[in-house]
Design a protein around this nucleic acid. Structure first.
Lengths: 127, 127
DNA sequence: GCCGTTACGCACCGATCGGTGTGTAACGAA
DNA sequence: TTCGTTACACACCGATCGGTGCGTAACGGC
């Protein structure tokens, strides 16, 4: 069974951990359309705070998925871009996830909604 | 650009959140080879605690990715199995992730190691 | 009657995460 | 000279997560 070694493989664990943080994948996806400045990223993403974006970028840098290029200019100017590794992650697994989400996302949201109501009902029993 | 709607799509966000918890994907993968009892899962996974497995199974159930079947037997007997939704997630995105990990996992670990050493060095400066 | 197994539940703990709010170095524009 | 922008850092906060440890209902075997 290749499934079992699939489970035990530590590199797969390391890979799933890349998605462990809420905004990392979003930032990655935002960089898929080309290099961007920090501010552009913030605006493109929308509901992310300054510090959280910094954290996410630090993690992506630490994982070698993005590059940081600082230009010595008047208002500081820093550009972030996907590395080859980051690009391959976006093109492969993230695109697969995107396809899955567009295909099965409704079922997922249905299930989540349904069980969310159940949780509320059970919690009402314990004041 | 289909990349941008890819970013903004909330269903994609919901999908990446499925990987947000350390053991969820591991448990899912462990179920890929067929239905298993809770104890079998625990042993198959290895370093997971009882409570954390419960948490993970609850989340997977809440997301409609797995099924729970309890049999009224002598020592309690509960089997967990992938739903159609869970199976599609394993077959699609998780397999893609697995392929990516076997292909690029070394680079990822290299980058992590390298920056980990940097972090340690910087942290030594601040006792 | 007592022990072991199974599948949990519950309490507690330290670490981490997302989020907010505030400060700041460097410069250009007004 | 003061103001605004950019790209951060730092402190703090509440919530959550992974993990440990202990309890327990239901039964079967000894």
């Amino acid at each position: 069974m290749d499934r079992d070694e699939f489970v035990a493989d530590c590199r797969v664990r390391a890979a799933t951990d890349l998605f462990a943080h809420t905004w990392d994948s979003v930032a990655l996806a935002a960089l898929a359309s080309g290099p961007r400045r920090r501010r552009e990223l913030r605006d493109a993403i929308g509901g992310i705070s300054d510090k959280v974006l910094t954290d996410a970028l630090h993690r992506l840098l630490a994982n070698g998925l993005i590059d940081r290029r600082a230009h010595a200019e008047a208002p500081p100017r820093v550009e972030y871009a996907l590395t080859g590794l980051g690009q391959s992650l976006v093109d492969g697994p993230m695109k697969a996830l995107g396809r899955w989400a567009t295909e099965h996302g409704d079922k997922l949201l249905d299930a989540q909604e349904k069980s969310a109501r159940n949780v509320i009902e059970t919690r009402v029993d314990q004041p």
